[in-house]
């Protein structure tokens, strides 16, 4: 565990809290893409199936392979799953009337199908768990596309929404640094699938980061895109 990895995870965690706080404080999920949030629930569900493995080890009192890192990962995975499901739940129940569904027009099959095909072709091992893990990595990389499309459609984002997007985009950028660090310091550490997907994921936020920093520098509350 290095400083980049822990910062990335905490930033990721912060993104959930910012979004939930925004939705609770303003009683609105305006400007937030339900489709992107739904994709994140799918991403975490497919990626964290190994939680059952950890659970299995715990209920059989097989603690030999449970390390501090396992406990940390397990704790965070449960938090990420709970937070993302809670967000989707809020957007479909009490905040449904404020949801930007009419402008959230991205066709999810356009990312789901290619990610599924890529996961079946490019994976480290042809097993169900490994393919689902790989699918989740590919899907996470592009899951922000409905949100970016909604942002372009709307032309601006309120302060909390833009902080949320900065946190969720920034976390993967920090993972890139973490991977470079691990590659340099750990023997045999290599994971091309995650690296390429992580790079694509960060690159998709490129324009957003630019406008976010323009907003921060100018002291504006709302992020505005050029018309």
């Amino acid at each position: 565990m290095n400083i980049f990895r822990i910062s990335a995870d905490l930033l990721h965690l912060a993104s959930f809290f910012i979004l939930i706080f925004k939705m609770k404080a303003t009683k609105s999920c305006k400007g937030i893409s339900f489709k992107t949030q739904l994709m994140y629930t799918l991403v975490f569900t497919c990626r964290y199936l190994d939680l059952f493995h950890v659970l299995g080890m715990m209920i059989t009192f097989n603690f030999a392979h449970i390390t501090g890192l396992t406990l940390y990962n397990t704790f965070m995975k449960i938090l990420f799953l709970a937070a993302s499901y809670y967000i989707v739940y809020l957007m479909r129940t009490e905040l449904k009337s404020t949801s930007d569904d009419a402008r959230d027009t991205f066709v999810l099959w356009h990312i789901l199908a290619p990610c599924a095909v890529l996961a079946l072709i490019f994976n480290a091992q042809f097993t169900i768990l490994e393919i689902l893990w790989t699918f989740s990595i590919y899907l996470e990389a592009v899951a922000v596309m409905p949100q970016l499309m909604l942002l372009i459609e709307t032309g601006e984002a309120d302060s909390l929404s833009s902080h949320y997007m900065f946190a969720v985009g920034g976390y993967r950028a920090l993972y890139l640094v973490n991977w470079v660090y691990r590659y340099a310091t750990e023997p045999y550490y290599s994971n091309w699938i995650a690296w390429i997907a992580g790079f694509v994921q960060t690159a998709l936020f490129g324009d957003f980061f630019y406008y976010y920093f323009v907003k921060i520098m100018s002291g504006d509350a709302a992020l505005k895109l050029p018309t």
């Binding site: 990962n73 990420f80 480290a124 993972y175 973490n178 550490y189 995650a194």
Partner: peptide, 10 residues
């Protein structure tokens, strides 16, 4: 193992 790389991350 190949499958373990990256699986210790979130």
């Amino acid at each position: 193992a190949a499958t373990e790389a990256g699986h210790d991350e979130l």
